[in-house]
């Protein structure tokens, strides 16, 4: 399911949503992050890492940006276990917990997604610009893009995981 979701989001970002940038480079969202961040916290660290690598590879192939998303997504995949530990509740994750709005709450989801998005966008910024003198001017657009990506992910969560679908009895 995770793989299918990831493939779908990669294709959506590459072929449909790639030009959804309301304020140009200041709001360049990474829609596929939503799929990667849905990898359950209880999953193996290797699965998280390989998921990130796979997503990056898919994005690069689809977008023609060979290597940039691979590096950023692999970095995020490698950091996901640490992020999950960092954001884990005091009593730890339940076995059924999923990183969704309903299970983890809005503050957890927004915080977790924002940190992950900032990491992803910063790495992407570095590998996109490369030269140190270009980085200062690229930091702010990266941060705003990370915020926009977070917002998009929350919207997707709200669209896909409605309370009714999660728990029909309520």
């Amino acid at each position: 399911m995770t793989a299918l979701r990831m493939l779908l989001m990669v294709l959506l970002q590459a072929f449909i949503l790639r030009d959804v940038t309301p304020f140009g480079e200041w709001t360049r969202p990474e829609w596929a992050l939503w799929a990667l961040l849905l990898v359950p916290p209880q999953a193996s660290p290797f699965l998280k890492l390989l998921s990130g690598f796979a997503m990056g590879t898919g994005l690069d192939v689809a977008l023609g940006t060979y290597g940039q998303h691979m590096v950023a997504a692999t970095a995020l995949g490698g950091a996901l276990p640490a992020l999950h530990r960092l954001f884990s509740p005091r009593e730890g994750y339940e076995i059924t917990d999923r990183p969704t709005l309903q299970d983890m709450g809005s503050s957890w989801l927004i915080g977790f997604t924002l940190i992950a998005a900032v990491l992803y966008h910063l790495v992407l910024m570095v590998v996109s610009n490369w030269y140190w003198q270009l980085l200062p001017s690229a930091i702010l657009p990266s941060l705003t893009s990370a915020a926009f990506t977070t917002m998009c992910c929350v919207v997707l969560h709200m669209m896909v995981y409605t309370p009714d679908r999660r728990n029909p009895t309520h």
Binding site: G56, Y66, G67, Q68, T74, A75, G77, G78, W130
Partner: peptide, 16 residues
Amino acid sequence: LMAVSVSVLLRNNGAA
């Protein structure tokens, strides 16, 4: 995996 990614990037990105 990072090495693979970086090598792909270096192979395909002139500026990098």
